Computed example of a mutant assay.
Amino acid sequence: MNDDTTLLTAYGALDSAAVSDALDGLVLPPGLGGIRPVWGHRALVGFAAPVELAPGTPDPSSSGAHIATSAVATSGPEDVLVIAGGGRTDVSCWGGLLSLGAALRGVRGVVADGACRDVGEAREAGFPVYARATTPVTARGRLRQVSSGEPVRVGPATVARGDIVVADETGVAFVPRARAHEILRAAQAVARRESAIAEELRGGASLPDAMRDARLAGTEEPH
Rank of each mutant, 00 (worst) to 15 (best):
Q188M: 08
V45W: 05
V146E: 13
A112W: 00
V82T: 13
A122C: 03
A49I: 02
G96K: 08
T89G: 07
E221G: 00
V80W: 12
E200D: 13
A13K: 14
V154S: 06
G87E: 04
A205G: 09
G33N: 09
T170H: 09
A125S: 11
R123V: 09
R215A: 03
L98G: 08
G114Q: 03
A191V: 03
T219K: 13
A17I: 09
W39I: 01
T69L: 07
A13V: 05
E220K: 13
R161C: 09
T134L: 12
G162T: 00
A186Q: 15
I83W: 11
V38A: 03
V152Q: 06
G109H: 02
R42L: 04
I35A: 07
T5S: 10
S147L: 04
V146W: 08
F47G: 07
E220M: 11
G40K: 13
A103T: 06
V19Y: 05
L100T: 15
P156T: 09
S195R: 10
A178V: 02
A13L: 12
E200T: 05
H223S: 14
F127T: 08
P29W: 02
L216C: 01
R192Q: 08
E124H: 11
E121H: 02
G141M: 00
A139E: 11
V45L: 08
L8C: 02
A186D: 06
D79W: 14
L7T: 14
G101E: 12
V72Q: 09
G162A: 01
R132Y: 07
A84T: 13
S206Y: 11
S75R: 09
P151G: 13
R117Q: 05
A157N: 08
H223W: 13
S99L: 08
G114M: 09
V27D: 13
A139N: 12
L32W: 09
V38M: 14
A210I: 15
G64Q: 01
G106Y: 04
R105H: 10
E194F: 06
R42F: 01
R42H: 10
S20F: 07
L81R: 11
P128W: 07
R212F: 04
A43S: 15
G162L: 01
V45M: 05
Y130V: 02
A73T: 13
G64P: 04
V146M: 10
P50N: 12
S75A: 15
R123W: 12
L26F: 06
T138G: 08
V129R: 10
G114T: 07
E52T: 14
D118H: 15
A103R: 12
E220F: 03
G126S: 03
L100E: 14
P208A: 08
P156S: 01
G101Q: 11
